[in-house]
Simulated assay, not measured.
Amino acid sequence: MTNESLIDPTTKHTTDPFPKQEQSPPGLTDQMSPQPDHGEQSYRGAHRLEGRRALITGGDSGIGRAVAIAFAREGARVAISYLPSEQADAEETAEWVSDAGTDALLLAGDLRSEAHCAELIEHTEQAFGGLDLLVLNAAYQRNRGGIDELPTDDFETVMRVNLFAPVFLARAAVPLLEPGSSIITTTSIQGFDPSSALVDYAMTKAALVAFTKALAEELGPRGIRVNAVAPGPIWTPLIPATGWPDKLPGFGRDTPLGRAGQPAELAGAYVYLASDDASYVSGAVLPVTGGRGL
């Protein structure tokens, strides 16, 4: 007898090849075809983050939007960090957060700035009266033709957004965090199985694994947990903005599940790591990769 309550993960979301498309960085949701699923219609909260105060970098779109929606539906107040050019995406995310009956705080700016990173923590603390959850999610990547073609200014952007900013943000946030607080980084399968076309991005994601584990060791005695989520190929604005339109039809099809993931499929991992369900989990890297091993 067939169990009709089961959902086949190989067909839960589209398995059709993504059409060729390209955007300028950082990429915008409304220009994507097809539109990603952030859990707008599917995520159901269970009060697991009631009363928590969260800051999510890159929270305007993609994985960050899915996490923002999920956190809000779990009862958290949510601050969203994003670039000024992503204002429309951020405002749409804020509407979903507000619809969940919780506060949304929009904080535009450039994470390459050390001063802006400190201001993000300060503004969140002032607006919410504290900070309990810090999700270091924002990232930048571009397709590289070869190491000899890697532009210095672009390389510096990857390093500052993906590595410097998490350090600046954690440095400013840690003095405010109380026992039971949580820091979650977004690393990547690229940190374990790097592609030469994303050499600098992969470097930063591998470094974030070390950062996560070292920070977990430091902050554990204070009752602050630090973990990471390692996504595989996920359909977000970052992908059409990477500069590889010819690769998009095959994007994600090399995973054991045979398709790319949707941002909504990441939300539960972040909620778990942020919640008391994961009270004995720290220094961990949780893969959400469609079956590809780390």
Rank of each mutant, 00 (worst) to 15 (best):
1 M>L: 10
8 D>C: 02
10 T>C: 14
13 H>R: 11
14 T>Y: 04
22 E>I: 15
22 E>T: 13
25 P>V: 05
25 P>M: 04
43 Y>N: 03
48 R>M: 11
54 A>F: 06
56 I>W: 11
61 S>K: 12
63 I>E: 01
63 I>K: 08
69 I>M: 11
82 Y>P: 08
84 P>M: 02
85 S>P: 01
85 S>A: 15
86 E>A: 11
91 E>A: 14
92 E>K: 13
94 A>F: 09
96 W>C: 07
100 A>T: 10
101 G>L: 01
105 L>D: 01
106 L>Y: 10
108 A>H: 06
110 D>S: 06
110 D>K: 04
113 S>C: 11
114 E>V: 15
116 H>A: 03
116 H>R: 06
117 C>W: 02
120 L>C: 12
121 I>F: 03
121 I>M: 02
121 I>T: 03
125 E>S: 13
129 G>C: 13
130 G>W: 10
130 G>F: 03
131 L>I: 14
132 D>I: 10
132 D>L: 04
133 L>H: 12
140 Y>A: 10
141 Q>A: 14
147 I>M: 14
147 I>W: 13
148 D>L: 04
152 T>Q: 05
152 T>D: 05
154 D>V: 15
156 E>H: 10
157 T>S: 04
159 M>Q: 06
162 N>K: 07
165 A>W: 04
173 A>P: 11
180 G>P: 06
181 S>V: 08
185 T>F: 06
188 S>A: 09
197 A>E: 14
199 V>E: 07
199 V>K: 00
202 A>E: 14
202 A>F: 01
205 K>F: 05
205 K>Q: 13
208 L>M: 15
209 V>D: 02
215 L>I: 00
218 E>I: 02
219 L>E: 09
220 G>F: 13
221 P>N: 09
221 P>C: 11
225 R>L: 11
228 A>C: 00
228 A>K: 01
232 G>A: 01
232 G>E: 02
237 P>R: 10
237 P>H: 08
238 L>Y: 04
243 G>W: 00
246 D>M: 05
250 G>C: 04
252 G>N: 14
257 L>T: 03
258 G>I: 12
259 R>H: 09
260 A>F: 12
260 A>Y: 09
262 Q>H: 01
262 Q>C: 07
262 Q>P: 05
264 A>Y: 01
264 A>W: 00
269 A>I: 12
275 S>W: 08
280 Y>M: 07
283 G>E: 09
288 V>G: 02
293 G>W: 11
294 L>S: 13
294 L>Y: 10
